[in-house]
Amino acid sequence: MDPARRLGPAQIDVVAQLGVSTVLLGGIYALVSVGLTLIFGIMRVVNFAHGEFLMLGMYVAFWAYTLLALDPYVVLFVSIPLFFGIGVLTYVLVMRGVIHASHNVQIFTTVGLSTALQNAALVAWTGDYRTVRPWHSAVVIRALGMAFNLSQVVAFAIAVALTLVLFAFMKWTHTGRVMRATAQDHDAATLMGIDTDKVYRLTFAIGIACVGAAGVLVSPLYAAYPTAGLQFVLLAYVVVVLGGLGDMLGAMLGSLIVAAVEVVGSYFFGVAWKEVFYFVLFIAVLVLRPAGLFGQRGAETLGV
């Protein structure tokens, strides 16, 4: 192929389109993943039910839109405290009792929760695909020769804003520091008078609030159904492992990588195969760099 043609305006457009798509998708993935990595980083628990809270968020948006004609962005303000509360409740009823149990007990507790929530949704709302179509999902923005859905852009903007707020909270507030201290050394934190139970409760609630918000934000873009969380949580695992379980900045970078793999893979090989790429990437990273691309130690084989 002659170089002049390769660098022609059409090709530049494609690259730009892929790049912007990656960033937009990556922002949403970051919000889905950040709660997962936060919960793991501080509580040392992989929440296998994380996707189900996303699914619940999508349903909340759906019902608010269908029954009350509320726009998902309005619902967001209600859903954050709502899912924070659901997180507290879930922690108290389910997680608290197994926080010091073995990995296997923790795995099965969250897997059980996932099964129960998924099927509770099935029983309550059937397996039908439910879509939310507010006005902004039909608005197409054209800029620089690219086309984007307004909902996608807004979802991205809010997701990034929420992730940054969480970031700032963890970094600069006293509570955030207490949470990070607990993550580093649970026993030392206890000795220093930190109420670790409270820290875990808050952590879990924040994590669930994030993923619930993500569910509401993606509702204009994806259909809601009982297992809708699965596709997101699977990629969130990839994101979080890429970034290093428990590493929030890593999760953001991981989100961009996964989004890039998905966008570029879909472009070249078709949408049907996109997941193969990130699962292969996932297994490769687990085998070669289990502490994540940016991690340092073999956390996966040590005490985790």
Binding site: V45, V46, F48, H103, N104, Q106, I107, L234, Y237, V238, V241, L245, A272, W273, E275, V276, F279, V280, F282, I283, L286, V287, P290, E300, T301, V304
Partner: peptide, 28 residues
Amino acid sequence: YLSNRLRGPYFALSTIAFSQVLLIVASR
């Protein structure tokens, strides 16, 4: 082999990924 490299939740995650790859291949 993965079970020798990975423990607990990491191993469980890798097995999920493995079955998902097969699912995608079989369904596509």
